Computed example of a mutant assay.
Amino acid sequence: MNTLAQIATHVPHDGWGWGGSPGWFVIFPILWFLLVVAIVVLIARSARRGFRQGPPWARQAGPHPVAILGERYARGEIDESEYRSRLTVLRGTGDPGGDRS
């Protein structure tokens, strides 16, 4: 007759589960390590390129149109009324020929 200790220590192996292979205990920490390294590398690359510039597909090529307009006004190429009307059009706020107070 089996004692309770013999029954508790005897666990039959039916081919499912870990199967006693020590390889899994090495592979899973390596996979977690590689995942963490990949995340750190992606964050470092994004930081070098600049988080504030936005994603690459949303970045503009060249200077901002409002900045170009301001430079033209500063150089005297356009007068104040033309600057304000074009600025209103660029910003999309209201009627460019409307009230300028």
Rank of each mutant, 00 (worst) to 15 (best):
M1N: 08
M1K: 14
M1D: 09
M1E: 10
T3V: 04
T3N: 07
T3M: 05
T3S: 09
T3D: 07
A5Y: 08
A5T: 12
A5I: 11
Q6L: 12
I7H: 14
I7R: 13
A8W: 09
A8P: 06
T9I: 09
H10G: 03
H10R: 03
H10C: 03
H13F: 09
D14K: 03
G15T: 02
G15C: 04
W16F: 09
G17S: 08
G19Q: 05
G19I: 03
G19F: 01
G20E: 11
S21I: 11
G23E: 13
W24P: 08
W24M: 11
V26K: 14
F28N: 12
F28G: 12
F28M: 13
P29I: 08
I30F: 15
I30C: 15
L31V: 09
L31Y: 06
W32Y: 11
F33L: 15
L34F: 15
L35M: 13
V36R: 02
A38Y: 10
I39R: 05
I39C: 06
V41M: 08
I43F: 07
A44G: 07
R45P: 01
S46Y: 02
S46N: 08
A47K: 11
A47P: 11
R49M: 12
G50I: 07
R52E: 15
R52T: 13
Q53V: 13
G54F: 11
G54I: 14
P55E: 05
W57I: 07
W57M: 10
R59L: 03
Q60Y: 09
Q60E: 14
A61H: 07
G62Y: 02
P63Y: 06
H64W: 09
H64E: 06
P65M: 04
A67K: 13
A67D: 13
L69W: 00
G70F: 04
G70Y: 04
E71Q: 09
R72L: 06
Y73K: 02
Y73F: 06
A74K: 06
R75W: 05
R75H: 07
G76L: 00
G76C: 02
I78V: 04
I78K: 01
D79V: 00
D79C: 01
D79Q: 00
E80M: 03
E80Y: 05
E80W: 05
E80K: 03
S81V: 07
E82V: 03
L87S: 01
L87D: 01
T88D: 00
T88W: 00
V89N: 00
V89R: 01
L90D: 02
R91D: 00
R91W: 00
G92T: 06
P96C: 00
P96M: 00
G97D: 03
G97F: 08
G97R: 08
D99I: 05
D99L: 05
R100T: 03
R100G: 02
S101D: 15
